[in-house]
């Protein structure tokens, strides 16, 4: 009962702010809606028992990536609206149709697989074995997934260097 109310509230929040992100005229408003969307997703992670991921979501997404977006929105000072010019060959209707087709396909797959019922999602506390979520996740990341973890750190290093090189002023 309580988890159903929580889920539907969060789902409505997430979808409403996602739609607000893609419909807002002003990019700064879009960024603010994106922050609220990310925070709602973080609460979904907590409901699903992924506390560490919720923390990372708040720190990296709502704290880091969104600030990056805000900086870029403020750095580019547009004299005319970014959407002023539209390519006459642009097929907006076909794009929306394709996206709706994607949603219909995914829903059809879910409806097909949904015939064999799954157990209800267990609340966070009772799902856990010994050790907290962070301990278990850290154990996985540093043993089984050590090499992907190192590759990810290398990717971040390369991305950092690449971003510095790209954003540098060329003289």
């Amino acid at each position: 009962m309580l988890d159903a109310i929580a889920f539907y509230t969060l789902a409505a929040l997430i979808l409403a702010f996602a739609i607000a992100v893609i419909t807002a005229r002003n990019p700064v408003h879009s960024v603010v809606f994106l922050v609220i969307n990310f925070l709602a997703v973080a609460i979904v992670y907590i409901v699903l028992g992924a506390e560490f991921l919720a923390m990372i979501q708040v720190l990296v997404y709502a704290g880091g990536i969104v600030v990056l977006y805000l900086f870029v929105v403020m750095l580019v000072n547009l004299k005319r609206g970014p959407e002023a010019h539209q390519d006459p060959r642009r097929q907006t209707g076909a794009g929306v149709g394709l996206a709706v087709a994607v949603l219909a396909e995914l829903t059809a797959i879910l409806a097909y697989t949904g015939r064999n019922p799954l157990p209800a999602v267990v609340p966070a506390a009772s799902a856990r074995g010994p050790g907290g979520n962070t301990e278990q996740l850290g154990w996985l990341l540093y043993t089984t997934y050590l090499i992907p973890f190192e590759v990810a750190s290398m990717l971040l290093l390369v991305a950092m260097i690449g971003a510095i090189v790209l954003a540098r002023k060329v003289d």
Binding site: Y61, L68, A152, L155, L156, V158, A159, G162, A163, V165
Partner: peptide, 13 residues
């Protein structure tokens, strides 16, 4: 999330 962070940094650059 790590890949998304890298993508955002390079993309915004």
């Amino acid at each position: 999330i790590a890949v998304a962070a890298a993508e955002a940094a390079v993309g915004l650059g």
